[in-house]
């Protein structure tokens, strides 16, 4: 039981980092990416390869995963951000589809469908931290750091610039904001953090394959952010907890056959997204849009 809880808590922490990083894009910058699982995946593969080939140091893996994911995200951001928002959605969807093919075909880098197995136990400066509780603490520290960084940046001028662009791009431009550059920066930062989450995920699973980085995963993370509430610090975390606990809760319901749990879960969060947009667009943890 304790093991199960530790496990769930670690997963929630990793997804917390991932959702917080997507919130930077969707919630603060108003950039709608459906390819977040791709950068999560790049981080995971990078972290896993680093651990397998060189050294299983989590900090190094996080750094490498983050840097590579952030750098590659510019390939998406530079072309797609020059044009309207609809294009970014289309481009990110396209990227997501292409990346899944790439992940399953580039055997030498990703291990193909079989994935990368035998990721060694995580260490930190040579000290073994593979103990579930220790690893959880490390993940929590990373999450804390990420949240703190996001909070500081979003309360400062960078956050104001992104939110201004989100609320009115043309007005932001008219007041001297270099919109493409700021958006690129936001995408780079968000995807770097997704890469960090990916590296942690690789150690947590001790094995990675393409199944974790598909369109479904991107949608799940998006649902976490939206249902929890965009542009708040707590919102994505609320979303993560709700959606990670949902399958467990559903498995207690006797009338749902176990094979259908995945579909029922999707049904619930798809419906929740639609209903929220009609009745409470800011999400569960967001401020309601009451007008005077």
């Amino acid at each position: 039981m304790i093991a199960y809880l530790l496990n769930l808590a670690t997963l929630a922490t990793v997804f917390g980092i991932l959702a917080a990083s997507l919130n930077l894009l969707i919630g603060y910058a108003g950039i709608f990416s459906i390819a977040h699982a791709v950068f999560f995946g790049i981080g995971a593969y990078t972290g896993a390869q680093l651990a397998i080939l060189f050294i299983p140091d989590v900090l190094l893996a996080c750094l490498a995963g983050g840097v590579l994911a952030g750098a590659l995200s510019l390939c998406l951001a530079l072309p797609a951000l020059r044009v309207r928002g609809e294009y970014f959605v289309a481009a990110s969807l396209g990227l997501q589809m292409m990346a899944v093919t790439l992940f399953s075909e580039a055997h030498s880098l990703t291990g193909g469908h079989g994935g990368l197995v035998g990721i060694p136990m995580p260490t930190l400066f040579g000290i073994d931290i593979s103990e579930p509780a220790t690893f959880l603490v490390f993940c929590l520290l990373v999450l804390g750091g990420v949240l703190l960084a996001i909070r500081m940046l979003m309360r400062g001028s960078f956050g104001r610039a992104l939110m201004a662009i989100r609320d009115s791009e043309s007005a932001a431009e008219a007041f001297g904001k270099d919109v493409p550059r700021l958006k690129t920066l936001a995408v780079g930062l968000g995807c770097t953090l997704a890469g960090v989450a990916g590296a942690l995920f690789a150690f947590y699973m001790a094995f990675v394959n393409v199944e974790s980085f598909t369109l479904e995963q991107s949608i799940l993370v998006m649902a976490m952010v939206i249902i929890g509430g965009t542009a708040t610090l707590a919102g994505p975390l609320v979303g993560v907890l709700l959606l990670l606990l949902l399958p467990a809760a559903l498995s207690f319901l006797p009338f749902i056959p176990p094979t259908q749990i995945g579909a029922v879960q999707q049904l619930i969060y798809g419906g929740a997204m639609t209903l929220l947009m009609i009745f409470r667009p800011a999400g569960l943890a967001g401020q309601s849009t009451g007008r005077r």
Binding site: S157, R160, A164, K177, L185
Partner: peptide, 12 residues
Amino acid sequence: LAAIEHSAWLWQ
């Protein structure tokens, strides 16, 4: 405030 912060970097 946003109308007068021009730097396109993480801080001013």
